[in-house]
């Protein structure tokens, strides 16, 4: 009915990654450094609801909490209604929020709700997010989603502080990535097909493509200089690791259509045949 898993509550700002790479010269002209608005992503638990029966949710939630009462005390939760049955009557969100408050849980966001539920969330001063829609959902296939979600669920059950979160947030996609699609992975990203021209894939870790890379691939988008890109045929529009990028024109023609790996060495991109 419900499960808890790790996820980000704030989607990393992925649009215009390239423009973020260059420093903003305008900002330097001002010397008002009293505040700064920055983007960050923090980890939190996600409460995914799969039933509109709040009694059942209440009981199951209490069971989960009793497994680790200290961990859950005053802990922040993102409510995920994406997979909650949509037919009427829809989930009574205000009642759910009251249940959470009663259990000393602090909902800090909601995603996947309908317009009505989003309105209720805002009336509780709970922000509405769309993270699942932009990341997990992009794999477009329910099976893929399960692949990603299940290990995380198990991880949570056994131990609360997991030591290897990178493993947990990897993403695997079996279908081709089509032109215009954008994929963002919190860890490593593995694609079992090709990445079409005009598609954009991003990962905080490394990117592995078992097919042609014809679109844009950005690895280590949160600054991980150790991340790499692997593909079985390099035909990319753009490749980037931790903000250092090369466009198609700058890629040596020698390396085109070859299986390669790309990594960062002394701040420059090295393309090496595999």
């Amino acid at each position: 009915m419900i499960f808890l898993k790790k996820d980000d509550i704030i989607p990393p700002i992925t649009s215009n990654i390239l423009s973020l790479m260059s420093t903003d010269t305008k900002a330097q002209n001002y010397k008002k450094n009293a505040l700064e608005i920055k983007s960050t992503s923090i980890s939190s638990s996600v409460l995914a609801i799969y039933s509109t029966d709040l009694k059942q949710v209440d009981i199951l939630l209490q069971e989960k909490i009793s497994l680790a009462p200290e961990f859950f005390k005053n802990s922040a939760l993102l409510i995920d209604l994406q997979d909650c049955p949509k037919q009427k009557p829809a989930l009574d969100l205000s009642a759910l929020i009251e249940i959470l408050y009663a259990k000393k849980l602090i909902p800090i966001g909601i995603s996947g709700g309908n317009a009505e539920q989003n309105k209720i969330a805002l009336s509780f001063k709970i922000p509405v997010h769309t993270i699942r829609g932009s990341t997990l959902k992009n794999s477009s296939n329910k099976k893929d989603q399960l692949d990603i979600v299940l290990p995380i669920e198990e991880d949570k059950k056994t131990e609360v502080e997991s030591s290897s979160t990178a493993l947990v947030e990897n993403m695997l996609i079996a279908q081709p990535i089509r032109s215009g699609q954008r994929i963002y992975a919190k860890g490593d990203l593995t694609i079992l097909s090709h990445v079409g021209a005009g598609a954009e894939i991003m990962a905080e870790g490394s990117i592995h493509i078992y097919g042609a890379l014809r679109g844009r691939a950005l690895a280590g988008v949160q600054g991980n200089m150790e991340s790499r890109i692997f593909c079985t045929s390099l035909e990319a529009e753009l490749i980037s690791i931790a903000g250092t990028y090369k466009i198609s024109e700058e890629i040596d023609k020698e390396d085109n259509n070859k299986p390669v790996q790309i990594y960062l060495q002394k701040k420059s991109l090295i393309i090496e045949k595999l």
Partner: peptide, 24 residues
């Protein structure tokens, strides 16, 4: 071909079947 690729991406994500998590 490029436009068809784009269309296929949209077919996979913005149809009734994908919204309802049915067979694509």
């Amino acid at each position: 071909v490029r436009d068809s690729d784009r269309m296929l991406g949209i077919l996979a994500s913005k149809s009734r079947r994908s919204t309802n998590d049915e067979e694509p």
